[in-house]
Design a protein around this nucleic acid. Structure first.
Lengths: 146, 146
DNA sequence: ACTAATTGTAACCGAATTAGTTACAATTAG
DNA sequence: CTAATTGTAACTAATTCGGTTACAATTAGT
């Protein structure tokens, strides 16, 4: 699995949008970047993927604002995973194995079937939670000074 | 997930050792590298992890030979995953989120709980298959020239 | 004991990937 | 018109991945 933070940051973004949606406050890629503690361009790249996945929409221009396209309860972690995760769960070999070896020949198709089952199990679990739940769980952890 | 091929190559190695164990033929890190189509040092690094995980053992020295430590049926894909996978399934943020933001403050502990569930589901599925099954499935794919 | 083969490991390298940065045209509210 | 922001491209630094070289330690066979 790609050692990147896309899924985590995407969930952070959507949870934040769930909150600003509740509070009816305005938020830009700059404001999001401030919460994530990263740069606005990275945030916009992820927002682009989330927009393509129909999970968010944007009011562009001078009074810009990002919103969820659906209720937080109707955005599953699987929706998010599929929107931002390009790579398969498990990578294959870098070089194709030796085709004249009985194992090298058949290992990739064999692993594909096992990997597909594993990925299906993961996705099934991801489908069971949603952004509303993540927001609720997030808010149980209070900020430092109250 | 970590964009590396460790898990795949480890499974390839163990499947190959299941085969050489059946055939009672000798195999070295060089022979394994030839099937995987990589370099022997990379193979030995993985063999080191698998040995630490008690999945393989080695006859060292001039008549070297690698063997499975257990029957292929008693090595689950989860055993392999845990032997070679150092990183968690999903990475957290690179920089810790803004602690003065209600979301930034609570998102990491929240995600940890959801990620733990997802990882548990994945592991449960991986525990359901073993190297014996991977070998059987691999051998159903015949080499090019017979 | 000596030789030959192999493991275990360290050090280094190039390629690829990740996120950060700068820049700027396109969009839009006021 | 102006000011703010998005969308995107181009470039960069840091990190990671696997490949390479090298060599001491181990061991079977003679």
């Amino acid at each position: 699995m790609s050692g990147n933070s896309h899924f985590t940051v995407a969930l952070h973004i959507l949870t934040l949008l769930a909150k600003t949606g509740q509070d009816d406050t305005v938020i830009t890629s700059d404001g999001i970047a401030d919460s994530v503690r990263t740069n606005p361009v990275f945030v916009r790249r992820l927002l682009g993927l989330l927009k393509k996945g129909r999970l968010v929409s944007v009011q562009r221009g001078s009074a810009a604002n990002w919103r969820l396209s659906r209720l937080p309860e109707n955005i599953s972690l699987l929706d998010v995973y599929e929107a931002v995760q390009a790579e398969p769960l498990f990578e294959m070999h870098h070089s194709t194995p030796n085709p004249s070896c009985p194992i090298g020949c058949g290992i990739q198709p064999a692993l594909q079937t096992f990997y597909a089952q594993a990925e299906a199990a993961l996705k099934q679990e991801l489908a069971r939670s949603n952004i509303g739940e993540v927001l609720a769980e997030t808010l149980t952890h209070k900020p430092v000074s109250s």
